[in-house]
Design a protein around this nucleic acid. Structure first.
Length: 455
DNA sequence: TTAGCCTTGATC
DNA sequence: GATCAAGGCTAA
């Protein structure tokens, strides 16, 4: 919080301003030297040894309100709050003072009169032209993104040299390093072993979308999808939307949700979700063309992940609730039913992360669902090669879609985030499978007994 | 809206 | 590596 101690100290030892009235500027000689370039501390100017810099930094006082300052902001020494205040207000039309235009601006009163505060900012030499304009902000953000990508690539090279270097056989194919990484993400060897097999972060990894204005305006930065790709994307998106739509208020269940459901009740509540999943895969042409026994295996192998993914799809980030046929249900109901704090928090964090990336983009939800479905490593699969080929197809389709929507510049970030999310999903699915293994089968719906292998 | 903390690139 | 000075994020 703001502190007035530095002012008291200076008055006590007589080092600073000779009893300035609140109206007078309280800045010392180092503020008032307009020749002092930003970035050069008063210690440099006065010839103080460099080792004293930190001490000097602690002793600075805001020229506007007298609060503790860390250094120069917009050409004058100010505290964090006056810096933020100036940034927000310097370019806006000046407000009128409700009094005589000579209000006291100190730590206590600085909020009372924006007019006198902004005047004092200008008086002590703060410069509005040092606030970055939109073009400068944009350039700055582009540099941040560029560096992030560079750091990511070098990190990948250090952590996974084999992934970073394209293999001979990949040369000339449309598989990028990242695509290869995604392809390999299902390999059991590469799944990190963690406690309960759950994702490590205690907090959700929130994805920050690049601001609209940062997306390139030049069409050459976007992939043009083939007609076939467009049809496929349209088909799966429509199919997904149609099956998720039943949750979005079409069939409202008049009975309120139970506040503390048991684990059995929780499992049984997924019955409709599983039926939606079956309806969805029934509309995916590539799934229909698979041999029947592999269709069943694929469905069983991915059902837990699919249910979890659909819970994320109906998760409302702003309210921390699931939107189901009974209305909005707080995520806290999971806590009691699951009775496992790590699984519960991993589930909620997964929903937050996934929703922060995909938002309400049904094409991406559908693609993520299909990638969970087509897993050549799954149990009891007979034609693994075909499943691997289908997996390739949808990974590339996902990459192309991201490039068409978010540009070549930003597609990588999305792809990496989705890859991480699918890894987390796999581990969360395994944790849930362990938990539901011990339920009493007599209380579980027949369809769920079958798909969850609980018989 | 404010104010504090954080991240970042530039500079020394 | 330390420091400075921008903007971003977010609880209050």
């Amino acid at each position: 919080m703001a502190s007035i101690k530095p002012l008291f100290d200076q008055v006590a030892n007589g080092s600073a301003h000779s009893s300035p009235s609140p109206q007078e500027s309280t800045f010392d000689s180092s503020y008032s030297n307009p020749a002092t370039p930003a970035g050069v501390s008063s210690a440099d100017v006065s010839g103080e040894p460099v080792r004293k810099r930190h001490r000097m930094r602690d002793e600075k006082v805001c020229g506007v309100c007298g609060d503790k300052a860390l250094g120069y902001n917009f050409n004058a020494i100010t505290c964090e709050s006056c810096k933020a205040f100036f940034r927000r207000n310097a370019l806006k039309p000046k407000p009128d003072c409700l009094f005589q235009g000579n209000c006291v601006v100190d730590v206590r009163t600085r909020r009372f009169c924006p007019s006198c505060r902004i005047n004092k900012c200008f008086t002590i030499g703060m410069k509005a032209d040092m606030i970055l304009d939109d073009a400068e902000k944009r350039a700055r953000m582009e540099k941040v993104v560029e560096n992030r990508n560079r750091r990511f690539v070098s990190h990948e090279k250090m952590e996974h040299p084999a992934r970073a270097e394209p293999r001979q056989e990949d040369q000339g194919s449309s598989h990028s390093v990242l695509t290869t990484a995604l392809l390999k993400s299902e390999s059991p060897k590469e799944i990190p072993v963690r406690h309960y097999g759950l994702p490590k972060p205690s907090q959700a990894r929130m994805f920050h979308h690049p601001p609209r204005e940062l997306l390139p305006s030049d069409p050459q930065f976007y992939r043009r999808l083939t007609e076939e790709e467009k049809w496929t994307l349209n088909d799966i998106s429509t199919a997904y939307q149609a099956t998720i739509a039943t949750l979005h208020g079409a069939e409202v269940d008049p009975n309120p949700p139970k506040a503390n459901p048991s684990l059995n009740e929780l499992i049984n509540s997924t019955d409709e979700t599983v039926r939606q999943l079956i309806r969805f895969v029934g509309k995916v042409v590539d799934f229909q063309q698979m041999r029947k026994d592999d269709q069943v295996s694929c469905l069983k192998n991915s059902v837990m992940q699919s249910v979890l993914m659909r819970s994320a799809c109906v998760y409302i980030l702003e309210k921390d609730v699931f939107l189901c046929s009974k209305g909005e249900v707080s995520t806290s109901f999971l806590k009691k039913a699951v009775n496992n704090a790590s699984v519960y928090s991993a589930h909620v964090n997964f929903c937050k992360s996934m929703k922060s990336i995909i938002l309400n983009n049904y094409t991406l939800w559908a693609l993520a669902q299909i990638l969970a479905l087509f897993n050549p490593c799954g149990a009891a699969i007979i034609d693994r090669e075909m499943l691997s080929t289908l997996q390739d197809k949808y990974i590339i389709l996902l990459k192309h879609y991201l490039e068409s929507e978010f540009s070549f510049t930003f597609a990588t970030e999305y792809l990496v985030a989705i890859q991480d999310m699918l890894s987390d999903l796999k581990m969360l699915g395994e944790a849930y499978t362990t938990i539901i293994f011990n339920v009493n089968p007599t209380e579980i719906e027949p369809l769920l007994l079958e798909v969850f292998n609980l018989k």
